[in-house]
Simulated assay, not measured.
Amino acid sequence: MDSRSHQPLNTAVREDFSEYVAHLQLHMTLQARNLVPPLTNASDSREELLQQTQANFEKLVSRQGR
């Protein structure tokens, strides 16, 4: 069998696969946007986390002093 007869098929498969990968990358990017909080809220959540950590640490230290 001549390998040249498979070239159009291989090219079509590669193009289909490339299109599939591009679609998958776009889908994953859009999903990632839904999972990551907006940057405007990031500083607020970091401050809140810091305050919670400090409060938990202070509770722990105050209990150890007894």
Results as ranks from 00 to 15, higher is better:
1 M>N: 13
2 D>R: 12
2 D>C: 08
2 D>L: 08
3 S>N: 13
3 S>H: 13
4 R>F: 07
4 R>W: 06
6 H>S: 13
6 H>L: 15
8 P>L: 02
8 P>V: 00
9 L>M: 14
9 L>W: 11
10 N>L: 13
10 N>C: 14
11 T>V: 10
12 A>T: 08
12 A>H: 11
14 R>G: 06
17 F>L: 13
17 F>M: 09
18 S>A: 11
19 E>M: 07
20 Y>N: 05
21 V>G: 00
23 H>M: 04
23 H>F: 07
24 L>Y: 06
24 L>W: 08
25 Q>V: 05
26 L>H: 15
27 H>W: 10
27 H>L: 13
29 T>M: 04
31 Q>Y: 12
31 Q>V: 08
31 Q>K: 13
32 A>V: 06
33 R>P: 02
35 L>Y: 00
35 L>H: 00
35 L>R: 01
36 V>G: 00
36 V>N: 02
36 V>L: 06
39 L>C: 13
39 L>M: 13
39 L>V: 15
42 A>M: 04
44 D>E: 12
44 D>A: 12
45 S>D: 08
45 S>E: 10
47 E>W: 05
48 E>F: 12
48 E>H: 14
51 Q>S: 14
51 Q>W: 08
51 Q>L: 12
51 Q>A: 15
51 Q>T: 09
52 Q>M: 10
52 Q>C: 06
52 Q>E: 09
53 T>G: 01
53 T>N: 01
53 T>W: 00
54 Q>P: 01
54 Q>W: 01
54 Q>E: 06
55 A>W: 03
56 N>G: 11
56 N>D: 07
56 N>V: 06
56 N>F: 08
59 K>L: 12
59 K>I: 06
60 L>M: 14
60 L>P: 02
60 L>Y: 15
60 L>F: 15
61 V>Y: 02
61 V>C: 02
62 S>K: 07
62 S>E: 11
63 R>I: 08
64 Q>E: 03
64 Q>N: 04
65 G>Y: 09
65 G>H: 15
65 G>T: 14
65 G>D: 12
